[in-house]
Amino acid sequence: MHDPAVEVTDLSKHYGSVAAVDRISFTVQRGEIFGLLGPNGAGKTTTLECLEGLRRPDGGVIRVMGVDPGRDSRRLLQLIGVQLQTGSLPDYISVVEAVRLFSAYHGVTPDYAILNRIGLGEKLQAQYHTLSTGQKRRLALVLALAHRPPVVLLDEPTAGLDVATRVALHSLIRELRDAGATILLSTHDMAEAESMADRVAIMLRGRLVAVGSPRQLTSAGSRLTKISVRTAGKGGMAGATLPGVERRDRQDDYDLYFTVTPGPTVTAVIAHIEGSGDELIDLRVERPSLEERFLELTAEEAVKR
């Protein structure tokens, strides 16, 4: 059994009297994509910056591949690749110069092939100030991976990107994970976390309020599954008696059922349609999304305060 890639125990960081991070603990296993979720100001970036050695924690213990970021920054920089949320490059450095420069400081041979894969192959000689936001973020990711680090820390990597670029970046991040890298991904995009992360931690006001796989987190929230049914008959599912249904609604020609027993409910829906001589056009079964679970947690926290 390997040690975790990242271990955080009782991490605290204050800015004046404000607790940006308040005694949080979590571990990231080797080879997993771990999402750090939360709204702006939740403490995600501060947590990442403590892991990166950019900020000194006020309390707690951090280990990245067994290294204390506060004590051995030289070793740490060999182990981590970082895409900063607020990082930048000199205006007049070209894409190829940036790759060459950072590869040299990491002591590795530049890998220009990745620039083609990520859509920057045509921009090798372009200077940084001429790149679009998406191109700058893609370049930042390329630079973070220049030395093929075992742990990659990404802070809002797809914020402000168009759909095609997001998909390309998601694909690259999954490939990194499949190649054995550990990815710690900070984002406030719930859909991104749900589709990308093996496990997620949700942060609110500097505290961790939930940790687990997206499935675990969503199943820990609302116990109701939404079943949407559309039939050919004009009456829809009127008069149907379905087991386990606690709430029903109708929207855009769909009958919506919120049930605690999705299996028997679906069986009863199909039996009712067959029995009534109607025709099934569409049937959807949806668990609550991570976003809905996040909103529940946010509401619970607001009540506690």
Partner: peptide
């Protein structure tokens, strides 16, 4: 400008 613009942070994290 490099300090205020976050360039030094990128340099630092890449071992410059």
């Amino acid at each position: 400008e490099t300090r205020e613009g976050g360039i030094l942070r990128s340099y630092r994290i890449n071992g410059v």
